[in-house]
Structure formats: structure tokens, C-alpha cells
Design a protein around this nucleic acid. Sequence first.
DNA 1: TCCTGTTGTCGAACCGGTTCAACCGTCGCG
DNA 2: CGCGACGGTTGAACCGGTTCGACAACAGGA
Lengths: 340, 340
Amino acid sequence: MATIGDVAREAGVSRSTASYALSGKRPISEEVRRRVLAAAEALDYTPNAGARALATSQTKVLGLLAQFHEDEFAPAMMQYILGVTDTARDLGYDTLLVTETDGARALRRITDSRMVDGVVLMNIAQDDARLPILRSAPQPGALVGLPDDCSGLDVFDLDFEEAGRAMVEHLHRLGHRELILISQPEHVVERGGAYVWRLRDAALERARQLGVTLHAVYGESRQPAVGLMLDALLDAYPSATGLLINNEAATAALPSVTYRRGLRVPEDLSVIGRYSDEFAATFSLPYSFIESAPDRLGSMAVRQLVRRVESEAARGEPFVVRFISPELVSRGSTAPPAAR
Amino acid sequence: MATIGDVAREAGVSRSTASYALSGKRPISEEVRRRVLAAAEALDYTPNAGARALATSQTKVLGLLAQFHEDEFAPAMMQYILGVTDTARDLGYDTLLVTETDGARALRRITDSRMVDGVVLMNIAQDDARLPILRSAPQPGALVGLPDDCSGLDVFDLDFEEAGRAMVEHLHRLGHRELILISQPEHVVERGGAYVWRLRDAALERARQLGVTLHAVYGESRQPAVGLMLDALLDAYPSATGLLINNEAATAALPSVTYRRGLRVPEDLSVIGRYSDEFAATFSLPYSFIESAPDRLGSMAVRQLVRRVESEAARGEPFVVRFISPELVSRGSTAPPAAR
DNA sequence: TCCTGTTGTCGAACCGGTTCAACCGTCGCG
DNA sequence: CGCGACGGTTGAACCGGTTCGACAACAGGA
């Protein structure tokens, strides 16, 4: 493989001149620049990433830490990841994907060894063991998800409180007075998945204010338990006329259950979900839903991260906690209630 | 951040001694080794990845090139990726995930710049533009998927031919004589997705041999087209008693269609799919299926890749093309046929 | 004519590791 | 007693870039 020394020799100049000609960081005569570029082209020169990283202390790689819990919904994760990798590439960065179980150790490894210029953390728990490590790391970081303590970090998340309220308000406005909310499984909460109760609590509070009965339950997320749970719920609350679902697996399983029970949506039952556009398009999900925009969140996190990485000034700016507003995408799965 | 020079000074030895003490590549007195290890511990020393890469020509990073076509099934991809990242980590490697549209350019970038020690390519097309680049790259590579020309490469894939035959044989044995096979959309084939017709052609051939009528169609992969297609097919071939599906999206959409039409599985219709275990568990898929084992494939590819990366001897070995045998997982969705 | 400033180029140092050749002291053996 | 072998350690070179300070050539101004 050609090194910059080879290029310099081929062009008949010194290594430093070749470097300047390629980077443009110093004025170089048109003649020499031409020769260097031609030599680089001829030798098919590509700078060695390790050498460049050593010299500049920049790797042009971002770390992406994702954790896969078997009770969470793996397909949804893909969206976040693509949002990150695509945006990173647009900004000139590659992405190191780390899926180790021991996220804290992994984070320490990639930051201490200077493999990355910055990191994006996903699946944030309320008391996330990775955060203290990130805070004391030499590189900046950004979170997708809201922990208890956001200090010293840039945080991006969907406004789950607002999402919960919006769901309740929407069905209340249509005249519904008894609703069921299916959240993620309870162990997701126990593990620190704050978004579960953020949506749930806000929905309960709004329901109380509006005088709506809301049966809030933690759902299952695996087959066949999901299907059984849906059936059990519909049996348990026969007078409920609306279903709010913050649980992808339950959403995916719902169509077969309603068909089996002969329930028509929205005539017999109104349904609102909370998932991504892409998810809706991929599956048979004819429900109105709160768009969770995973790609947008990943993209925002990366943009902010890269700002901090690249600009000395940006590194001094105060940290941001940014919530994106939930948007209700109508698919016609809600209507005024009728007796079931 | 501490460098090895700091460690050496702290331990009162030279840089080279510190290096040898840490790597164990030369005999070092117990006393000195102890001092060096203590110093490294005290200073929280982690070797700089760039410097090490430069010195050793090894990055301990593998590249993973995945392409996301919007007509393919994104959730399934996650499985392959996890198979790769998990196995890579077990073997001491991190994973650079590259999802660029222009896979050929991306491949050239990461190999020429020596960011990775080897690459795994996914979503292989029959005439894949990345292959010539991979063949002339300085690092070894492994494919998940079968191209037209496997020369100079290690290839891993499901035995789709055998899968097609197994599906047909299974239903033939039960007494079925008219079947429908739903493949991926035709543009997947046009783009070079050989696995589509590999399964399809083998199924057709076997059906011919067995005297079974097989209606082979290219399905849709997006809502709402998928559902409409399923309905249209069941209308078009009312006497077909079995359904073979090599199309994840269609599989996911099937339950609602059969419920809507009042079809019982397997009493009225036998169904066999082709997807992963994980996929089946995540969704309401009560069908018998050919396990496509994406995690196993990713894992095998990485193991072989790392063998070649790490052993001079292995690099000289002949290249392998390895098919994993399809395994039929029974979920009770097939039975002897009855008139529909 | 001399001085100053600008433009273009170069040599050398540096980033932080690894590794080779050489060296020193000690011990065993002839 | 002298020599060779060996265990333990070191200085220096190297990997392949970037960047700083110096310098030569030349132009313009006093």
C-alpha cells in the first residue's frame, strides 16, 4: 500500500509538502499541487487511519452503544441504529456498533483506548451504570433516552408525557370514557426504562383530570403471552371502548386478536399505538399512532455530538435536554364509541 | 491520559520493558512485572488504539457492510447484525457497522484506510459490485449470502434449494397436491437476490417430480399491498391446500387475512414459512417454518474471518462455500388436506 | 541598494505504541 | 579460569501520518 512518503517521492517533493498539498492547510504552488494529486491518484493513495488518528487525535469514528434485552422489541432498534449510522456518515463519520451486555465496560474500553471521537448511548436506564463513565470520558457523548440525572450530557427523547396526554385527550374528545392502556412489561420498568411510566403516569393524570376511566396495565411482550393478555384484557374490561398501546409487540399481535374476536376497528374499538412510521409500514398496522421517530432522534443525537466533537466552542456550551413533540398520525382507527 | 511512557517512568523502567511486561512477549523478572502492572493500574493506563494499530498493523475491528433496501425486511437484518457483533466481541473484535448506499465505495474506504482487519458482507447480490473490491483488498472477507462467483471468498448461506424441496416434500407427504409459493417481490430478484429463485426453482422442480401443482408467485412486501395480494391469491387458487411463504412481510400479514376469511390453520390451510426463530417468537406466527438461523450464519462468517485474520496458515487455506441445512421447526400448522 | 514581507518548500519532531539488536551480569561447564 | 549461554533490560528505530519553525527566492517599498 502506498504511503504519503511514496506519493512525495513520486511527485518529487518532501513528505510535508505532499501532506500540505493534499490537505490544503498551507499555500502550495499550482504546479506542485498538480503533481502531488497526480501521484496520489496514480499510486491509489489512501491515508492510514491509525497513523492519522495518532497524529491528529481524531478517529472520525463514533461509538454507538445499544443494549439488547430479550424482553424488548429488537426490530424497533434497527430504526434508531440506521438514524445514527446514516447521519454519522453524512457528517463524515463511521460508526462502531457495540452491543455488549456489559455496556459500562464496553464504554470504558472504546473511550479510554481512543477508538472513537464521541459516543451515542441508547436504551438509557434511569440509573444507568454507563453515565458516570461517560461523564468522565475524554470524549463527548449524547443519549437517546432520559435518565434520572442528565447533568453534563446532551439528551434526546420523545416527549412521552405529552404522548400519554395526547392519546387520552384524543379519545376523550371523541367521547370515550373508559380506556385501557397497555404498557411494556413491568420488568422493563424495573430495569429503569423510564419512558414506560412517563407515558403511563401522564396518561393516568390526564384521564383523572378529564374524568375518564383508564385501566393501565403492564403488558407482555412475547408470544404467546401477548395474545393471551390481549384477550384477557378485553374480557376483563368489556365496557372499555378505546385501547392505547405503548408496546410494539402487543401492537403487532393485536390484529389477529381483534379479528378472532370479531371486533371491528374503529366501530367496536378505537385504537391508538405508539411506534414508528417505518414499523407501521412494515407490519399490518392499520392503527392511528403517535410517531416515535427513532431515526430523527438518532439523527439529532449525532448532530449535536458531532458539533461538540468538532468545535472547541460548542464543547463549552451548556448541555441540552431536548424532547421531540409527539405527532399523532391518523390511520382512521379511532371513532366515537359505541357499546361493545 | 496515561501513555506507556508514563507507566514506564512510574515503574522506573524503560518504555520497552514496560511494553514487554504488559504483553509478556519476553521474559521479565517477577519484581519488574509487578511494578509495571501496579503502575499501569495506578495510572489507569489503556493503550491508544491508533498507536497500536500503526505499530502492529492490526486494529482489532471488523467491518460489517449491510445494505438496506426499502423493499427488504429491516427487522430481520437485526438478527444477522447481532450474530456478527456478538461473535466478534467474543473473539476480541469490535464491529464497524457500515450502512452506506454505495457499498462498494464504503468498502474501499474502510479497507484502504486500514480501519478494519477484515470484513463481513451481507445482502449479497448475484453480481455484487463489492466483490471485486473485496478480492483485491489487503484484508480477508466473508460473505453471508451466495453470489454468482464465489472465487477467492468464504461464503456462508442457508441452503435455499434444500429449503424449497423440504417445504414441498413435507406437504406432499401429508397428501397435498396443490400448493402456493409466495416469494419475495420480483425486484428483489432483479437486484440480484439469488436466494429468492434458488428456493423457488428448487421447489418447482421438486413439485414437478412429485406431481404436485405449485403456483409460484412473487409477493409484495409492504402494507397494504401484502394483505391484498394474499386475499387475491387465495381467491385465485381456491383448490390449493397449502401455502409456502418465503417472504417475512407476507408471513407477518397472514394471520389477519386467514382470520378475516375464516380459514383455520391447519384444518383448512396448511402453512410453512421460512424465517428465523427469533422472528417467530417476536410476532404472532403460529406456523411451522424453516429456520433461517441468521445469528448462526453471522457467527460462522465471523469465526472463519477471524481465523484468516489471525493465522498466517489459515490465510493460505482454500476458500469455503458452506450451506447450513434447513431445519423444519414444527408448530403444528400443517395437516393432511381437506377441501376448502 | 537595502530592507521587509510574502510565498512555497523542506527537515525535523511528534503522536504512542511495538520490536529488534545489543548489552550486562550471572551462572554452569569444560 | 575462561568461555558461552541465557535471563533480563535497554536504546533506537519504525509504523505513517501532521505540523512547527526555518529558510530560500523573489517582489515591492523606502
